[in-house]
């Protein structure tokens, strides 16, 4: 198990092209919302304004939103971000290392991680009607301690 993790780690470290991947350990103590997205995914477009609002409103309470982009071609992601600017962290994973590890089965998929670094829930897809329940979940985790 450890060996395979190391293998994965070294492979992705090579692929990461200067180290742009995710360091969840450094984010311990905060509530982390990890969102996997791609420029070609239609519901992803709808999630961006909501994620901006969440980061603006709840950032000071300890919420960190990290959007993992899985576009193979980096320029596609850049183009998307020019059209839909992000006010949260964006991580680029063109080789799909992180979605493989997280077991992402559709785009977008998000994971909500509590202040102790435990993944509390996984959410597949994004619809406008998902915004309120997701917001509620984030608030509950922010005020859990």
């Amino acid at each position: 198990m450890l060996l395979s993790l190391l293998l994965l780690a070294s492979r992705s470290a090579l692929a990461a092209n200067g180290g742009q991947l995710l360091d969840l350990a450094a984010l311990k103590g905060q509530v982390v919302y990890v969102d996997f997205w791609a420029s070609w995914c239609a519901p992803c477009r709808e999630s961006f304004p909501w994620m901006n609002r969440m980061q603006d409103e709840l950032g000071r309470d300890g919420l960190v939103i990290i959007a993992v982009n899985v576009d193979h071609d980096h320029s596609d992601a850049e183009h998307f971000l020019r059209e839909h600017p992000a006010r949260f962290r964006v991580v680029f994973d063109p080789d799909g290392v992180l979605p493989g590890q997280f077991g992402v089965r559709g785009m977008p998929t998000s994971f909500l991680i509590d202040r102790d670094g435990r993944v509390q829930s996984r959410h597949a897809g994004f619809r406008l009607t998902d915004r309120d329940p997701l917001t509620q979940q984030i608030r509950v985790l922010l005020h859990a301690h």
Partner: peptide
């Protein structure tokens, strides 16, 4: 998920922030 989070943490690197508009 605990294991998964740990494996992600192994990939110690800094996240790249996007400039906000």
């Amino acid at each position: 998920l605990g294991l998964m989070a740990a494996s992600c943490a192994l990939l110690s690197s800094t996240a790249r922030a996007q400039t906000a508009d």
